[in-house]
Simulated assay, not measured.
Amino acid sequence: MAQKRQREEGKPADASAGERQPGSGSKATLGQQTSHIKNKLVRAELYAKLKHKQKKQKKVERKKRDAEAARAEELGLEPPPKKQQKTLENTREKDVTMVEEGDEEVALDEADDEFAAHFARQREPKVLVTTCFKPSKAMFTFLTEMLEVLPCAEYYKRQGFPLKKVVGFAAGRDYSDLLVFNEDRKEVNGLLHVHLPDGPTAHYRISSLVLGQDIKGHGRPSSHRPELVLNGFGTRLGRRVGRMLGSLFHQEPQFRGRRVATFHNQRDFIFFRHHRYIFEEKESKAEAAQPGRPKTAVVARMQELGPRFTLKLQSLQKGTFDSKCGEFEWVHKKEMDTSRRRFHL
């Protein structure tokens, strides 16, 4: 009877359940506060009451913050800090492999890894690009745009050779990297990146591919070397993948071409974008009203060149490609996806 009375009054059977999650210090959600009620109508009614109360409380707090900010502005003081919105990125689970800025151990390791010669500008990138067996027309269209993104890349037809022979061929001709693109049902869906001559080998899944010709207002890239931007690679694995992607581009970009290639990691999805800066002279309305002053101002904008796609790391293997006896540094497994706030890159 006591529990029934508590349910009718909108109180949880366990007094502590409405305040905190079991086994944690965070406040319970509305769903957790009402989940103990078995009667659906009573549960829905209580949920609506709590939701209304929560909205009123948020409105009062918002008005209070606005009043404090207005008062601070009147007095010429610094306004109170804004409340940071919670996202999956800023609430991600702690990762022991996160790299702090100025980490000497990581710097020493990277000074002696497989990409050290490239970043020390002792070895120029030379990339061999090939495909799966019997590529479609859609694949060749995509490769045409990728060869414009990578001025240091060359395409060779696969011609039925096994991948081990292709790796040996590329290593023997002093190529620094091998890119093998795969497709399924005339859709590009995979990338195998082999860093030569000693590896590592990364396998990615490709999704959300949009060719440059299908992007509204797209431009055509020049032959200049693009500038490279790597963003969001924070863990040891992420930095290793970022350095591997960075080894595809020259360390001395030609800024005159105003081209930028970006790999942006967010929630372990690596978004690739290819842009160009455009500087235009536009009329400035603020200065046009004043006589004797210039009526134009230089405005910068970005024009997407394409292609755009998303990479998802599937595995990172030590050494060059070996499907039978290869040793893996990291492999994506389904058990790793139990939490939405756990990221590896």
Rank of each mutant, 00 (worst) to 15 (best):
W330C: 08
G160M: 11
S16A: 13
L77W: 15
A2V: 07
E287D: 13
R273P: 05
I215G: 03
P291G: 13
T91K: 06
R259T: 00
D14I: 11
G246L: 03
A48S: 05
G172S: 15
L88W: 12
S284W: 03
K165G: 03
R220T: 09
M336V: 01
F328C: 00
R342G: 02
T338R: 04
V210N: 04
H193I: 03
M302D: 10
A288C: 10
L143N: 04
E148Q: 13
T320V: 15
E100Q: 15
H274I: 01
V42G: 01
E145H: 07
F115Q: 06
G234N: 08
G190Y: 05
R5I: 12
L305H: 09
L209Y: 15
L128A: 09
L75K: 05
V180T: 02
R340A: 13
L313T: 07
R301A: 07
F271R: 14
I270L: 05
G25F: 14
H36T: 00
F115S: 12
G10P: 02
L46F: 01
F181A: 08
E148A: 12
P162V: 08
A289F: 10
L88I: 08
A107D: 15
Q54N: 04
R173C: 01
I37G: 01
E74A: 09
T310A: 10
I206A: 06
R340Y: 04
T296I: 02
R71H: 11
V194H: 00
F271P: 02
K285C: 07
Q32F: 05
Q84M: 14
K49W: 01
V42I: 13
P81H: 08
Q6R: 15
P226V: 02
G10Y: 03
K164V: 11
Q266E: 15
P221S: 09
P221A: 09
A72G: 09
K157M: 07
D112Y: 10
Q57W: 06
F140R: 10
H193D: 05
H218I: 02
K134H: 10
G326M: 01
P294G: 04
V210S: 06
K40L: 05
L77A: 14
R7G: 01
A67H: 07
E114C: 10
T130I: 03
V299T: 14
K126M: 06
R185Q: 14
V96Y: 07
L147P: 02
V60Q: 07
H193F: 03
I206V: 12
